[in-house]
Structure formats: structure tokens, C-alpha cells
Amino acid sequence: MDLDWNDDQRAILDALRVLLDQHAGQERAAELARDDAYDTALHAALADAGYLEISLADDAGLLEAAMLVDAVAGAAGSVSIGASALIAPALVGAVPPDPVALARAGERGPVRFGAHAAQVLVDDGDEARLVELGDRRGEPVETNYALPMGRLPDPLPAGRSLGAGSSARLRRLWRLALAAECHGAMRAAMDLTARYVSERRQFGRAIGSFQAIQHRFAECEVRVQGGRWLMLEAAHQGAPAGAVELAAGYATRTALQVFNELHQFTGAMGFTREHPLHTWTLRLQLLRLELGGPGMHYRQAARVRWGRAARGGTR
């Protein structure tokens, strides 16, 4: 047991922060969001520096990948970091060069990066499939939720099967990546808002000194920190069934609470484009819906733990 980063992990994080300071961040995110763009430059920078392959290195794995996903989300990166750096390498053993979308067979709604992806990882119940879109790309949809979204071609090409049972692994990795992305975004939003409520004054005092705000803020802090440990432990253990569902359930349920609370604490200002909060909070609304949302994650966690007694759905 050792719950601090080791020297190698710290070195990776330090170097990564330098890259993210240069290529990502709030201003860059705002610029991209204006026309629902994908951050091709950031994607290339992460790929060139080898970060997308981090989980394939001899001395690293899913924990380092989760750390990366968390950090990129914290820097408001508008790239398919979870799918490209965590899910695809673990599932197919290689890093796809272009953006990757995630989809579930039978669901037609818009998905993250649906108009930018060259490849799609599809959860098909039992077998996961890797679909090359070629020149049949998805259609963009206009969205308010920070990351570009699009509708994938319908029907999707069949693609290549990743083997019997691979969908379960895809969902586990997807849930881990979701938890990491939620954490990165929530941490950044919390830090920003802690500063805001310390500065904004009403009734002659900082609004952050009102206990009604302090307690709710502190409750969010317990959940954000607690969820971080769930996510990191699940990553360290290799994304086992049970742990990842708990991590995703806790992260996405916290995501809604953090969204609601932080927007309450920042008043009208928090609903403007000029105030940076939305850069991190809007994407939480999108993330919390994936794979059925917190209720589905939690039910699946219960089925994994109390399996025989609790047969039912498989997702």
C-alpha cells in the first residue's frame, strides 16, 4: 500500500502538465467550443509525446492511463482521450491514430466525437466491434455541452469483432475512463469555484464564508476525493468488474451534484460564457449519461457482487 504517486508517475504528470499548459486549458477550450471543433493539435501533441501509448509501456498500465485521462480532462482537453489512450490500447493493443468514438449497438443518439471519429468501438452486447468509418463519417449536431458531438452513420458498418465477451471488457474500461474524466473536470471546477466564492462578496462578506455554502461545498469535496480513490484503485487493479461500476456510478452521481451546487454557488455569473466554470461543468452533463448513467452503473455493480441472487440484466 502506498497512496502517493511514485517518482516515475510524478515525472510523467509534471511533463504532462507542461504540455497541457501549452496546448490545452480554458481559453483553448472556449475557442474550440465556439464551432464544436475537435482539438486536432492537442491530440497530435499527446500522440507525438507518446502519452497515448502510456498504458502499453512495460512499466505502466491502466493506472497511468487513468492518471492521463484525469489530467487531460482537468485541462479541459477536447479530445477522445479516454477512448484513445485508455480503452482502445487495452482492448486492441494499439493506439488508433485518429479520434475514436464509443457507441452501443441499438442506440441512435448523438455521441461524443461522433462527427470527428475515424473509428468507433461498439458495445454489441457480447462481442465488441471495432468499426473503421472510412469516408462515411458521422454528422455533427449542435450542442451546448462543451465536447463536440455527432450522429454516427446509420447503419454502422459491421467492423471487426474483438472476440467473444469483449463487450464486457469494453464496458469496464469505458466506465473507468468515464470516472477519470469526470474526476478531472470536477476537480478543476471545484478549485475554480473555491476561489470564486472566496472573492465574491455580498452582505459585506465573502459568500464562501456562509455556512450554507461551506457545508455543501465540503460535501462535494468528500465525494470528489472519495470518487478519485475509487477510480484510482479500480485502475490499479486492472479495471475489474465490480470496482469500475462503483467508480463510474459514484463519479457520475457526484457529477450531477457538483454541477448543480457549483452553478448555485456562482449565481448568474456561472451561467455566462465569460465565466470559465462551464468549461468543466457542461461536459459533466454529457458524461453522466453514458452507459445508462449512475443508476445503471450501480445496478450492475450490485449484480456483480451479489451475482447469483441478482441475475437480471447483463449490462
Binding site: 497512496l3 459514484y250 452521481r253 457482487r305
Partner: peptide, 23 residues
């Protein structure tokens, strides 16, 4: 099922936050 899962998550969070204190 959902509440069982949610309670299990709350317990695991308590365990891990305690582990950080022990660490």
C-alpha cells in the same frame, strides 16, 4: 439493486478515504 450498489460505493469510498489517513 441500485441502492445496494450505491451503498456499496459509499462504503468503498469510506474505506479508501480511511486508507489515505492510514497511509
Amino acid at each position: 439493486l441500485e441502492r445496494l450498489g450505491e451503498a456499496r460505493a459509499a462504503i468503498e469510498v469510506a474505506r479508501l478515504l480511511t486508507y489515505r489517513v492510514i497511509d
